[in-house]
């Protein structure tokens, strides 16, 4: 590279790299450092090395091996998996349906999937609180029909509804992108070779749209596992997820090293999960070819 190109590259790359380095990477590293420090009452840290935070997170309480904090971490991951699955079950047929429409209609359907995608998440979650509240729309409706009111708000059900609702567009869009690319001649070729509808789907359509499924699950799983808004508004503090735990440690509980340790363990679990998931998928594709 000539000196001219080098200085040009520095001008182009420098400011963005500086910003991301200083205001994204260093803060993340700081969290890792904080997780090995001592708690200072009233917020912040004392600069003494300590493993207290990790010990607190991993030490068993009473008769259970996993304490309440770790339980919330694991539950968040489990709910993220559940949400991904439900979104896939609803989203795949929806994306498939849209891809089967004539091109002019497709744009319209996609537009209607996109609107919630661009709409304020807080507002959309609030809409469900309005419906599920104890004296909300649904309970009023049940009462009007002569049935008993049911407690929905601040239950895991409410939180899961909110999670699926907020994530569905994130699943549909990558799925649609990969289904739309599917060459439907291949479907006919498979039928021509004697495959029935079930086999055409499992042997041709599903493997070819796997990249979209992978992308969709990643796009749903990761944000959901760290959700804060939904469990706060629809769980009301009674159904806590990881996001609430972190907010609590950096807020009212004021134990920054412990909050940092939770974040570090969470990121580590996510990273291991994603690496395994993507590896497995890559292997599958190799076999498929």
């Amino acid at each position: 590279m000539t000196a001219r190109r080098k200085s040009l590259l520095a001008i182009l790359l420098g400011p963005g790299a500086f910003w991301i380095g200083l205001f994204f990477l260093i803060p993340l590293i700081l969290v890792v450092v904080y997780s090995f420090l001592e708690r200072r009452s009233g917020g912040g840290v004392l600069w003494h090395f300590s493993l207290d935070a990790y010990i607190k997170l991993f030490s068993p309480t009473g008769e259970t091996l996993i304490n309440d904090f770790m339980m919330i971490v694991l539950r968040s991951l489990w709910w993220a998996a559940l949400t991904s699955f439900v979104c896939l079950i609803i989203g795949y047929p929806l994306a498939f349906f849209i891809a089967l429409q004539p091109p002019s209609h497709r744009t319209a359907y996609l537009f209607f999937v996109l609107i919630p995608f661009w709409t304020n998440f807080l507002v959309r979650t609030y809409a469900w609180k309005f419906i599920l509240n104890n004296n909300g729309l649904l309970n009023n409706l049940l009462q009007a029909l002569g049935m008993n009111r049911i407690a929905l708000i601040n239950t895991p059900t409410a939180v899961l509804i909110g999670l699926v609702y907020g994530s569905l567009p994130f699943m549909v869009l990558p799925l649609y992108a990969s289904i739309e690319k599917l060459d439907f001649d291949l479907v006919e070729a498979a039928q021509d070779l004697g495959a029935n509808y079930v086999r055409v789907f499992s042997r041709v359509i599903l493997p070819l749209t796997m990249p979209g499924i992978v992308a969709g699950i990643v796009l749903v799983f990761i944000p959901v596992s760290g959700q804060y808004i939904v469990p706060t508004i629809l769980g009301g503090g009674k159904v806590a997820m990881l996001g609430n735990l972190l907010a609590q440690q950096f807020g009212p509980a004021l134990n920054w090293p412990f909050g940092s340790a939770i974040a570090v363990v969470f990121m580590a679990l996510l990273m291991v999960g994603v690496i395994f998931y993507l590896r497995g998928d890559a292997r599958e594709e190799e076999v498929g070819l």
Binding site: P27, L28, L30, V31, V218, Y228, G243, F250, S260
Partner: peptide, 20 residues
């Protein structure tokens, strides 16, 4: 990374960073 990282993690890391 900033695209895929859960926003709560980025939020608390920035809180720690700005406070420091």
């Amino acid at each position: 990374l900033p695209v895929i990282i859960p926003d709560i993690v980025m939020a608390i890391s920035l809180l720690a960073f700005f406070s420091l």
